[in-house]
């Protein structure tokens, strides 16, 4: 009982609990039918939210005022770039992925430069860059649906024993992130900058380098997601990433990452992504309309943050 209590005191525990609860509700409604399929689909879809959720998580961890609003545009452009480079040929998949990562990295670095060199607040900087990237994407993609190579598309949808391979890869990625956050100088610096930038400075940490790496990494994750989404939905599309802005921020918050910065929670991203997707699944199972689905999701987000409290995201606490 004490062990259970200890585990529940971790911030991410509640999101997993919520996911389980919602799953149980959904399954009880169908009388057990399709439970396995539900889990498989949930895992498959969760991957996309998790990948950008990790990126948004580290940006938010940088401290109040930091958020990346350019993720949807990033995803859209990366999907077009990667599919164009892959050009329907399986042998070019590797290069295509690299192109997507490079595209995302460029956007991330551009965001950082806007913030640092031009002194624009992160919200507006990433907002502006999202406008520009969106235009680049529209012009580049010309609205054409560029199809992924068959092998790539099949791989993205591949399952082994009911578990999507991409979910396993996402778990590896998350594990890597977890290690990096806890056991590298970058990770330690990130948490320090987020918790107390002045103290971080006095402790001799490299603030600007940490910020640059963070925005760059977030951009790369957006690029990766763009390529994966194009593979899964079998076509690049400028609107591919639209719903991921809100969900990337939502999974960070619901997953227990501190909104004031400095305390990321990788397991929480998983718990919250599964929770949100299973919530949608449950509502679908109940047969509710799209409108009710949206309202319920929104109310859940508001309720979670109202209970959790804690100012942060827009304005730093007054000094």
């Amino acid at each position: 009982m004490k062990a259970l209590a200890a585990r529940l005191s971790r911030p991410w525990a509640w999101s997993f609990l919520g996911a389980v609860l919602v799953f149980v509700l959904a399954v009880s409604f169908t009388g057990g039918a399709g439970a396995g399929g539900m889990i498989t689909t949930a895992l498959a879809l969760a991957v996309f939210t998790i990948v950008v959720g990790l990126g948004q998580m580290i940006v938010i961890t940088l401290g109040p005022g930091n958020v990346d609003l350019s993720l949807p545009a990033n995803i859209g452009l990366a999907s077009a770039v990667s599919m164009t480079v892959m050009n329907g040929s399986d042998s070019l998949v590797g290069i295509g992925l690299l192109a997507a990562l490079g595209c995302g990295l460029a956007i991330g670095v551009a965001n950082y430069l806007l913030i640092r060199a031009l002194g624009i607040p992160p919200i507006v900087a990433t907002l502006s860059s999202s406008f520009v990237v969106q235009s680049i994407d529209i012009a580049y993609g010309r609205g054409l649906q560029i199809k992924p190579p068959d092998g790539f598309a099949d791989f993205v949808s591949l399952q082994i024993g009911g578990i999507p391979v991409c979910a396993i890869l996402a778990m590896l990625l998350s594990a890597g992130f977890g290690i990096a956050l806890r056991r590298t100088i970058y990770g330690r610096s990130l948490m320090a900058v987020g918790q107390n930038p002045r103290a971080a400075q006095f402790a001799g940490l490299a603030l600007e380098r940490t910020r640059l790496i963070t925005y760059g990494l977030c951009g790369m994750l957006g690029g990766l997601d763009g390529a994966l989404l194009a593979g899964y939905f079998r076509g690049a599309n400028v609107d591919l990433g639209n719903e991921y802005l809100l969900s990337s921020i939502a999974v960070v918050v619901i997953g227990g990452t501190s909104v004031a910065g400095g305390k990321p929670s990788v397991p929480g991203i998983w718990g919250a992504s599964l929770f949100l997707i299973l919530l949608l699944t449950m509502l679908n199972t109940f047969g509710v309309s799209a409108g009710v689905r949206l309202v319920a999701t929104g109310l859940v987000i508001v309720a979670v943050i109202a209970i959790a409290g804690n100012r942060g995201l827009v304005n730093p606490s007054p000094k």
Binding site: R188, Q195, N196, A203, S258, G262, K319
Partner: peptide
């Protein structure tokens, strides 16, 4: 509070943060 302590890190982490290399 404002310039020294990292409130969400352990004592050991707070000490070690100046010597990461």
């Amino acid at each position: 509070q404002n310039d020294g302590v990292f409130p969400m890190m352990s004592i050991a982490e707070n000490i070690g943060v100046g010597s990461l290399a």
